[in-house]
Lab assay of single mutants.
Amino acid sequence: MATGGRRGAAAAPLLVAVAALLLGAAGHLYPGEVCPGMDIRNNLTRLHELENCSVIEGHLQILLMFKTRPEDFRDLSFPKLIMITDYLLLFRVYGLESLKDLFPNLTVIRGSRLFFNYALVIFEMVHLKELGLYNLMNITRGSVRIEKNNELCYLATIDWSRILDSVEDNYIVLNKDDNEECGDICPGTAKGKTNCPATVINGQFVERCWTHSHCQKVCPTICKSHGCTAEGLCCHSECLGNCSQPDDPTKCVACRNFYLDGRCVETCPPPYYHFQDWRCVNFSFCQDLHHKCKNSRRQGCHQYVIHNNKCIPECPSGYTMNSSNLLCTPCLGPCPKVCHLLEGEKTIDSVTSAQELRGCTVINGSLIINIRGGNNLAAELEANLGLIEEISGYLKIRRSYALVSLSFFRKLRLIRGETLEIGNYSFYALDNQNLRQLWDWSKHNLTITQGKLFFHYNPKLCLSEIHKMEEVSGTKGRQERNDIALKTNGDQASCENELLKFSYIRTSFDKI
Rank of each mutant, 00 (worst) to 15 (best):
H28M: 05
Y30S: 15
Y30R: 02
V34Y: 04
V34E: 05
P36T: 02
G37N: 14
M38W: 02
R41P: 00
N42T: 12
T45L: 09
H48Q: 12
L50E: 00
L50H: 01
E51L: 04
N52V: 02
V55D: 01
V55P: 00
V55L: 07
I56Y: 00
I56G: 01
E57D: 03
E57K: 02
E57Q: 07
E57T: 05
G58S: 00
H59A: 13
L60S: 00
Q61L: 08
I62C: 01
L63Y: 15
L63E: 02
L64P: 15
M65L: 05
F66G: 10
R69H: 15
R69T: 05
R69D: 01
P70Y: 05
P70E: 07
P70H: 13
F73L: 13
L76I: 01
S77A: 02
F78K: 02
P79A: 09
L81F: 01
I82C: 05
I82N: 08
I84Q: 00
I84M: 01
T85M: 09
D86T: 01
L89K: 02
L90W: 06
F91E: 00
V93R: 01
Y94C: 07
Y94L: 09
G95K: 08
L96C: 14
S98D: 01
L99Q: 00
K100P: 01
F103A: 01
F103L: 05
N105E: 04
T107I: 15
T107E: 05
V108I: 02
V108T: 14
I109D: 00
I109C: 00
G111C: 02
L114W: 05
L114Q: 10
F115C: 08
F116G: 08
F116Q: 04
Y118L: 03
Y118S: 07
Y118K: 02
A119V: 02
A119I: 00
V121N: 04
I122L: 10
E124S: 06
M125K: 00
H127K: 02
H127L: 15
H127T: 03
H127N: 04
L128G: 01
L128K: 00
K129M: 11
E130R: 14
E130K: 07
L133I: 10
N135H: 06
N135I: 00
M137K: 10
M137I: 02
N138V: 04
I139F: 03
T140S: 09
R141P: 01
G142Q: 00
S143R: 09
S143Y: 02
V144Y: 01
V144T: 05
R145D: 02
R145A: 12
I146W: 01
N149R: 01
N149L: 00
N150R: 13
N150A: 07
E151F: 07
Y154H: 04
I158A: 08
I158L: 11
I158G: 02
W160H: 01
W160P: 00
S161Y: 13
S161M: 10
R162A: 14
I163H: 01
I163A: 01
D165F: 14
S166P: 12
E168A: 14
D169S: 10
D169V: 09
D169C: 09
N170S: 09
Y171F: 06
Y171H: 15
L174C: 14
N175S: 10
N175L: 09
N175Q: 13
D177G: 12
N179V: 14
N179F: 12
E180G: 04
E180K: 10
E180I: 10
G183P: 10
I185S: 04
C186G: 04
P187N: 05
P187S: 10
P187I: 13
T189Y: 03
A190H: 09
A190N: 07
A190D: 09
K191M: 08
K193R: 08
K193M: 12
T194P: 14
N195M: 12
N195R: 08
N195A: 13
C196F: 14
P197T: 04
P197H: 10
A198W: 12
G203D: 02
G203N: 10
Q204F: 10
V206Y: 15
E207T: 10
C209Y: 02
C209I: 01
W210Y: 04
W210M: 01
T211Y: 03
H212Q: 13
S213I: 09
S213E: 09
S213R: 12
H214D: 07
H214A: 02
C215F: 09
C215Y: 11
Q216W: 10
K217A: 05
V218Y: 13
C219Y: 03
C219R: 02
P220N: 03
K224Y: 07
H226V: 07
H226Q: 05
H226I: 08
T229S: 09
T229A: 09
T229P: 07
A230R: 03
L233N: 14
H236V: 02
G241C: 04
N242F: 10
S244N: 10
D247E: 09
D248A: 05
T250W: 09
K251N: 07
C255D: 00
C255F: 00
G262R: 06
C264G: 00
E266S: 13
T267S: 11
P270L: 08
P270I: 05
P271M: 01
H274R: 03
H274N: 03
H274A: 10
H274F: 15
F275S: 03
F275L: 07
Q276M: 13
D277I: 03
D277F: 08
W278V: 05
W278E: 05
F283E: 12
F283G: 07
S284P: 04
Q287W: 13
L289H: 14
L289Y: 12
C293K: 11
C293I: 13
K294G: 13
S296L: 06
R298T: 14
Q299A: 06
G300F: 04
G300P: 12
Y304W: 14
Y304T: 13
V305D: 02
I306H: 12
H307N: 15
N308M: 04
N308I: 07
N309P: 03
N309D: 09
K310M: 09
C311Y: 04
I312L: 07
I312M: 05
P316R: 03
G318T: 03
S323C: 06
S324R: 09
N325E: 14
L326S: 06
L327R: 10
L327W: 09
C328A: 01
T329Q: 15
T329Y: 10
P330Y: 11
P330F: 05
L332E: 15
L332G: 14
G333Y: 14
P334S: 11
C335A: 07
